[in-house]
Design a binder for these strands. Structure first.
Lengths: 205, 205
DNA sequence: GTCTATAAATAGATAGAC
DNA sequence: GTCTATCTATTTATAGAC
């Protein structure tokens, strides 16, 4: 049945896809709000408005729910990367990526997972979509990091992998939440502060 | 019964204290290893070698166990701060503090708690020892941050509170773990890299 | 595929004897 | 205070009707 589809089947598939989109959106929000451990499957089902058993027809486990949300997040990130003009210097694109990350985070839409959870970890490692998405993202960022180092814009003494990890870490930087709950700074302020400390460091220049 | 103690009572109290020390040490290790959510009270009791019910005679809840470990960690930090010479420049003391933090972390002895957990959060907020210790530590670091800014060593455009949070965040920086599991860098390398990106930033100088 | 109802397992906390 | 045994609540996951 390759390349054959009736309108009815397509419609059904669209409905299915739409529901899964809603599920993933809810999971994404809950992962951003309370994290993987505090998020319960009952909660997800209730928020989506379907029975828990129905949820398990779409995703075989809680870990797979989280994985689907992470795949979606990676797609959003990759999509944003593609929107950046090739005319910009690599260092500027990297700054823009971090800014975008902080924006998503401040909007409460950045899912974050505990790096210690082993069952979650193995699910992610065996998820091809996730691993491929992560590799694609890392390759692209890695390329820009190399370019920025060659151009003398990024510290050449830092291994590219360390730079990459440091950029990724902005997606779960607790400084953002701390400053936000402090209430003394606007979102724009927070982004500026974190961007400054990330790229320029704490020391005076 | 103030300032009165028999040898017997003192001995009993010493035994009690020793046991609680062992409990706190175990909790500290487990919090560093697997985090608060993954740590179970059964596990703590088994590791200490006592029954779970006995554990609950010492600490009324899992949250209080974690709080006790955090108080201990704050004491260790404060003790380290006190060991730093007043002759050093404030900026150097701050660098040393971060280096010490990374060392403890790399040794697998830095407990870290989820900032989202609300029951844990309220337990910590109502724990006087914890709050006092945190305040004392923050005051001291805050003083050094101010001095370093006045001396022109720290970026004056960053609010001291943002600097403080950024320093605290090194205690739960995932970059450290990522680089460590990568296996390509020694602990000394990792400390150098994280210290560089923290104080000097990713951008070239 | 969606539902209700329930299984199965886990974990925080406690009762009561000693 | 320490123990064994148990309670209670929660949560992941599934059975089975429709």
């Amino acid at each position: 049945m390759i390349a054959v589809s009736t309108g009815k089947i397509s419609f059904k598939e669209q409905m299915l896809q739409a529901r899964e989109d809603a599920i993933i959106h809810t999971v994404n929000r809950l992962l951003a709000e309370k994290g993987f451990d505090a998020m319960t499957v009952d909660e997800v089902a209730a928020a989506v408005g379907i029975a828990k058993a129905s949820l398990y027809k779409h995703f075989p486990s809680k870990e797979d729910l989280a994985a689907a949300a992470m795949v979606r997040a990676l797609e959003r990130a990759t999509s944003y990367l593609a929107s950046l003009s090739d005319d910009q210097a690599a260092i500027d694109k990297l700054r823009e990526v971090v800014r975008w990350t902080l924006q998503v985070k401040l909007a409460g839409e950045m899912p974050s997972l505990p790096s210690q959870n082993s069952s979650l970890r193995s699910t992610l490692l065996s998820n091809r979509q996730y691993m491929d998405g992560l590799m694609a993202l890392s390759d692209r960022l890695g390329g820009w990091i190399g370019q920025a180092q060659e151009a003398g814009h990024l510290n050449r003494h830092l291994p590219p992998i360390a730079v990459l990890y440091t950029l990724y870490a902005r997606a779960c930087d607790p400084v953002v939440e701390f400053l936000k709950v402090g209430g003394q700074h606007s979102d724009e302020d927070i982004m500026r502060l974190v961007l400054t400390s990330c790229f320029d460091g704490l020391s005076a220049r």
